[in-house]
Design a protein around this nucleic acid. Structure first.
Lengths: 194, 194
DNA sequence: GTCTATATATTGATAGAC
DNA sequence: GTCTATCAATATATAGAC
């Protein structure tokens, strides 16, 4: 028999995660209390522990599922020209960063507040994401369509540059998403000497 | 009469600030207790309050003095070619970031943990620093030596890219500072279409 | 200037009623 | 599944002795 539609657990669980993600991103993991999260959802503290064994697991879970989503959503095709792959990566990264800025910011910033075991796991996932970009730069260099003197440094530089979009972009601001992508693509294309 | 040389206050005060800077940068402001800071310096908690009225003021002071140092140290010459000014800015920014990574990281990340009044002050100083770079990009566009379709976005993108160096650079690692500067300069020069 | 001791508030987490 | 009540730990900050 199917699970009860609209059972409270299936509604409240995601709400708890949403609130935690938002608050952690805005104020930092350590600065947010379980009581604040509960209040944001309209619960009392005790009820949160139906949805997470503890605060640390809540953070780790948010970061973990974000990185898994990211890696699952990124589909590359090594057979295509490297420049085309790079543009797709850029568009993917900016799109994700603007759609889920809190999750991106969390996974980027809160590694230091993870327990060592959790940190290793997330660092490894992040590494795989970085490697996806680096593979494109290496291919571009090999194909002669890019000039990338140090693929590792360039990878880190480009990701830092693109992720920075979460620091200043405001919905409904001066630039819309397509325009942002277009400008970043100009910058990145130039940076890799294409 | 001159102040007593080597009085404890003149030694301990900076030590407190150093410890706080290091710990705040590593674990985040909210995650660090006054007890941890005291222990790092070899004091008991109460003694810290000789050097700061409270924890918030300690953070604000660290960020404030860093930004003031940064702005005082940056000397631009608008009469020089924009490309030359840009290279100097890049060298200055990377040099500072590698010499004082904790201060740079703090001022970049902990705005959110400042009380509103302090936040306004630091945000304004940061804005002035960003404007110093943007002025160079605008001059480059005007001189025809750079192609910068959106000077504000490019400013934010370049600063994010350069500041990212604190995330991965390790003293004694694969690349020394001059090599890092050289590679970043290739990236930046390309990005601004020079 | 630093210590010990302490006031007061808040934290993460648990127990048991409903 | 959520509440109320509570525990033990820890937080910032202050007071007064030395």
């Amino acid at each position: 028999m199917a699970r009860t539609q609209g059972s409270k657990a299936e509604i409240t669980g995601p709400l708890v995660r949403d609130a935690a993600r938002r608050l952690f991103a805005r104020h930092g993991f350590a600065a947010v209390s379980m009581r604040q999260i509960a209040a944001e959802v309209g619960l009392q503290v005790g009820a949160l522990y139906t949805y997470t064994p503890d605060k640390q697991a809540l953070l780790a879970d948010l970061m973990h599922s974000h990185m898994e989503d990211l890696l699952a959503a990124w589909q590359d095709d090594p057979a295509r020209p490297a420049l085309e792959r790079l543009e797709r990566f850029l568009r993917f990264h900016i799109k994700t960063s603007l759609e889920r800025p809190e999750a991106v910011f969390l996974s980027y910033m809160e590694l230091r507040n993870l327990a060592p075991g959790n940190r290793r796991v997330i660092a490894e996932l992040r590494r795989r994401y970085e490697d996806a970009l680096e593979a494109i730069l290496i291919a571009g260099e090999a194909q002669g369509t890019m000039s990338v003197p140090d693929s590792r440094l360039t990878t880190m530089a480009l990701i830092a540059m693109l992720t920075g979009v979460t620091n200043w972009y405001r919905e409904g601001g001066r630039l819309d998403q397509d325009r942002v992508v277009a400008i970043y693509w100009d910058l990145v294309r130039g940076a890799v000497g294409a």
